[in-house]
Design a protein around this nucleic acid. Structure first.
Length: 904
DNA sequence: CTCTCCCGCCACCCG
DNA sequence: CGGGTGGCGGGAGAG
């Protein structure tokens, strides 16, 4: 009926039309960035007097008020396309002028001075055409219209790590309107995202948002493909040739034996996930393929730097196009498009490779690199159940764990990249540069690595932290890749965090952990380019498990997890290995079936579940240092750890029924989403069984290294304590208490222990604790690498443990109860977007005992070393509260409101 | 000048 | 056959 209001006059007069639109559907107008003219509103349409909140409209911009995906979904589902929106489209179609203005306003208003927005509009209406000139003057720069910026806005709309239960649908139309661009641009973005499996096409005009869960897996697969394609060789070859674009002649770069006929294989890589839309022609996927190949180049490159011309040449050669200059130009254009999106994803960044002939545009990979190598040690650890692999991996991690433990005061990761690297690249004396002119990147790797290493060492030296990160990552076991192993070992401290934990399932752990862990996060400026949250000494907060931990749980429970598309089948056939798992055949079968069903019918969901399974993490469960090489013990540990984790998971503080209901809404930590109630029974039973077989003397640690999950937070869990928490397995699962220590991030200097201790539940009868709610851990925004050591207080520091247990305050509040809903409701900031300097952090305040829970000396010292927080030396409780308070007022961080009183 | 890459035409493809 | 997709390259802003 509103359509009837549309008259020819309206079509002629853009402003009028806009007015009508805005008034008719203020909310929609807001959503779609339609600006409403206040002046004209009243007389024109008395129909609806609802005041239009202009401020609301202004904050539409994702930078300031990201749309919550949930609402988005709801909206889309309930009212996919409002009449008003239709009307708008109609008008736009009728009048290009209108469309133009609408578009420009919609897209650029947020960028422009927001205070001027309204004024501008008024001027536009009042002054008329002159306003158009005005607009022309203020026309946004090219940069403001860039695909990268658009992509950021796009990404800001969706959570980086959506819950598995949350299926976000992307309507291209809506997004295009919302972002004020034509759909064509959205295609560009979506295609690249799709190539990385961040989205997938579900229907016409509809995409499903998956988030970054599967990114590690995708990258792993791409790297493998890239290796198969011998991209590294190709790059090296090309780089040895004349690189000057002007002199470039295609024929001379042709090489024999290049597997340039493998394009279809690349497609196959995506095939499993594109089952619903894989009927596209090769051509259709060109941009996707280009994107994947482009990423591959980075992944196989030791320098992680790819110049555009090299990439373009390789792509042209592979595509077997008629090589000519225009093709080259076109390829480069497309590469820029892709690069823009990848940059928005914080996977790459622009750099320049300086050559004798000048600078050469290039991009450097800043995304995760230790998601697993092709030989996949990490993957095997987390996803395979082969005892041998486990044993091997465990042994390695044990070593590093021991090393860490022996000097946890100076735990460190290799100083991460950005600063050092940029220096190197820009330095005239950089080997990179020197070698560049004389023969190709491959030649300088050794020296470059040496430089990096040296710089790293220097840096570490300066910080009194001499130890390198010894966690076995994918590269670290590969001695032939010193660069990777030594330098890229820690991909976590990107200048723009690529692994912000929007949704780091706060919920994940809530069923699992209820403990008081002293970890707090504070934004810490770093490099001037981003704010990296860092740990604050002496800030008693809670940590935090991440998806990774649950991935671990999932992996262990599920047994062989599907690998990336190509090898999923073979992997999942490794059933024999699963005998180590405390899984009943039935539950296992269910899991498999469920997964299968998902893969067949719910590609989107499937992907998420796979993400969980494939997330990189390493695991260490040393029974005893001396037993590290014992296969049998390793097996036992593996089994037991699985059991423990299972216990954690299943026997959360919730009654089974409640847990199930929770699972229904937020079971992100159950990869296969087996909501089957009997599953709980099974696993519970298993837990009990395992519990009975546990040897109390065993000391276990779970070392969880999780780039994507914890963003550098490395967790060392004590496994031995877990069984004890499993009380008299009644219907009331006891709370899981996790004392832990947080180990410092290297850039921050030696940081001993941010302590945490969960006193009561461990020793006392869990069931007796009143209201032992779950703790909603969320550690989304830990930008800087840090290590979280979760271990039985008694083992790590018996003294402390005792202290804590004796602390009535602490004892009084072992846990907090945070509902997933709460977590979600706070999850409105999209940390992925570089726009947000802060990263969502869920901070759980812990009533701090006046008695220091960590060794005073250490705490004080490191507090100084770290942050020099003025108040850090004052009253711990007050200070902490204040700090927490101030953090809470910061819009940059997402946090959970937790009743400070705890369970009463 | 080169680097970037926006823009939108128009061909392809699918339902 | 109409609309969704997206390849493609002209051309202009940015540096």
């Amino acid at each position: 009926m509103e359509i009837n209001c549309l008259t020819l006059k309206d079509l002629i007069s853009p402003k009028q039309a806009r007015l009508e639109l805005g008034i008719e559907d203020g909310e929609n107008a807001q959503k779609e960035n339609i600006f409403v003219d206040r002046l004209r509103m009243a007389p024109k349409t008395p129909i609806k007097n609802e005041p239009i909140d202009l401020s609301k409209q202004k904050i539409f911009t994702p930078e300031r008020n990201p749309i919550t995906p949930v609402k988005l979904v709801d909206r889309q589902q309930t009212e996919p396309w409002t009449p008003t929106a239709n009307l708008k489209m109609l008008i736009s179609a009728a009048s290009p002028d209108i469309r133009d203005r609408e578009k420009k306003k919609g897209l650029f208003r947020p960028i422009e001075n927001k205070d001027d927005a309204f004024t501008d509009s008024l001027q536009l209406d009042v002054v008329g055409d002159s306003a158009v000139d005005e607009y022309e003057k203020q026309r946004p720069s090219r940069k403001q219209k860039s695909l990268g910026l658009l992509c950021q806005k796009f990404l800001a709309r969706y959570p980086s790590y959506p819950l598995s239960t949350e299926k976000t649908t992307i309507s291209l139309d809506e997004v295009a309107v919302s972002l004020g661009v034509e759909r064509r641009r959205i295609y560009d973005i979506v295609n690249v995202l799709e190539s990385l499996h961040l989205v997938s096409r579900v229907a016409k005009n509809q995409y499903g948002w998956h988030g970054r869960h599967s990114l590690p897996k995708t990258l792993r697969a791409l790297r493998r493909l890239g290796e198969e394609q011998k991209y590294e060789e190709q790059m090296a070859h090309l780089q040895q040739k004349e690189l000057d674009l002007m002199d470039y002649k295609f024929g001379e770069h042709r090489k024999n034996g290049y597997p340039n006929s493998q394009d279809h294989q690349l497609l196959d890589f995506s095939e499993p996930d594109y089952s619903s839309s894989s009927a596209n022609s090769r051509k259709d996927k060109s941009l996707r393929i280009m994107s994947q190949k482009f990423v591959m180049l980075f992944l196989v490159s030791k320098t992680k730097i790819v110049t555009l011309d090299v990439a373009a040449k390789i792509l042209i050669e592979e595509s077997q196009d008629t090589p000519d200059h225009s093709k080259f130009k076109t390829k480069v254009r497309r590469l820029y498009d892709i690069a823009n999106v990848l940059t928005s994803l914080a996977l790459i960044k622009k750099v320049h490779v300086t050559e004798e002939r000048g600078r050469k545009p290039a991009f450097k990979w800043i995304g995760p690199v230790d998601f697993g190598s092709s030989d996949d040690e990490l993957v095997d650890i987390s996803t395979s159940v082969l005892p041998e692999l486990k044993r091997e991996a465990y042994s390695k991690v044990q070593v590093c764990a021991k090393q860490r433990l022996s000097r946890y005061g100076s735990f460190n990761t290799v100083q991460t990249s950005e600063r050092i690297e940029r220096k190197v690249i820009s330095e005239p004396s950089s080997p990179y540069r020197e070698e560049q002119g004389s023969g190709g990147y491959s030649l300088e790797i050794g020296s470059l690595a040496a430089v990096y290493r040296q710089k790293i060492e220097d840096n570490l030296q300066e910080r009194n932290s001499a130890s390198k990160r010894v966690v076995p990552t994918a590269g670290s076991s590969n001695t032939s890749l010193p660069f990777d192993s030594d330098y890229c070992v820690n991909p976590l401290a990107h200048q723009v965090l690529s692994v912000a934990q929007t949704d780091l399932p706060a919920l994940s752990m809530q069923n699992s952990l209820s403990g008081a862990v002293g970890v707090s996060l504070a934004p810490m400026s770093s490099d001037g380019e981003s704010v990296k949250p860092a740990m604050l000494a002496g800030q008693p907060l809670m940590y935090v498990p991440s998806t990774s931990l649950f991935m671990l749980c999932a992996s262990l429970r599920e047994g062989p997890s599907p690998e990336s598309g190509l090898e999923r089948d073979s992997r999942s056939s490794e059933v024999p290995g699963t005998t180590e798992l405390p899984l009943t055949p039935s539950s296992q079968k269910r899991l498999c079936e469920h997964r299968k069903a998902f893969e067949e019918h719910e590609p989107a969901t499937k992907r998420q579940s796979q993400d969980l399974e494939d997330s990189p993490l390493s695991l260490v469960m040393p029974k005893k240092p001396s037993d590290s090489s014992d296969l049998a013990s390793a097996k036992t540990m593996g089994s037991r750890s699985s059991a423990s984790l299972e216990d954690i998971h299943v026997n959360g503080p919730y009654p089974a029924a409640e847990e199930r209901s929770r699972n229904a809404t937020a079971n992100c930590f159950i990869p296969s989403e087996c909501g089957n109630p009997s599953r709980n029974a099974d696993t519970e039973k298993l837990s009990r069984e395992n519990e009975s077989t546990k040897e109390p003397s065993l000391m276990q640690y779970l070392y969880v290294q999780s780039p994507s999950g914890l963003n550098g937070f490395n967790v060392l869990f004590s496994g031995s304590q877990i069984p004890h928490t499993v009380g008299p397995s009644s219907g009331q699962p006891p709370p899981f208490s996790v004392p832990c220590m947080v180990l410092p991030s290297p850039p921050l200097g030696p940081f001993p222990v941010i302590y945490s201790a969960m006193p009561g539940p461990i020793s006392s009868a869990p069931g007796t604790l009143p209201n032992t709610g779950p703790v909603n851990f969320n550690l989304p925004g830990l930008g800087s690498t840090a290590h979280l050591l979760v271990s039985p207080a008694a083992m790590i520091n018996p003294k402390l443990s005792t202290l804590h247990s004796a602390d009535p305050q602490l004892q009084g509040q072992p846990s907090w109860n945070l509902s997933p809903v709460t977590a979600r409701s706070h999850n409105v900031i999209q940390p992925e977007s570089p726009v947000y300097m802060g990263h969502p952090v869920s901070v759980v305040k812990l009533e701090q005992s006046p008695v220091p829970v960590t060794p005073k000396s250490m705490r004080c010292r490191h507090r100084e070393t770290f942050f020099k927080t003025p108040g850090s030396l004052g009253d711990p409780v007050l200070r902490r509260r204040e700090r927490s308070q101030s953090r809470n007022t910061s819009s940059a961080q997402r946090r959970l409101e937790i009743p400070s009183s705890g369970p009463d």
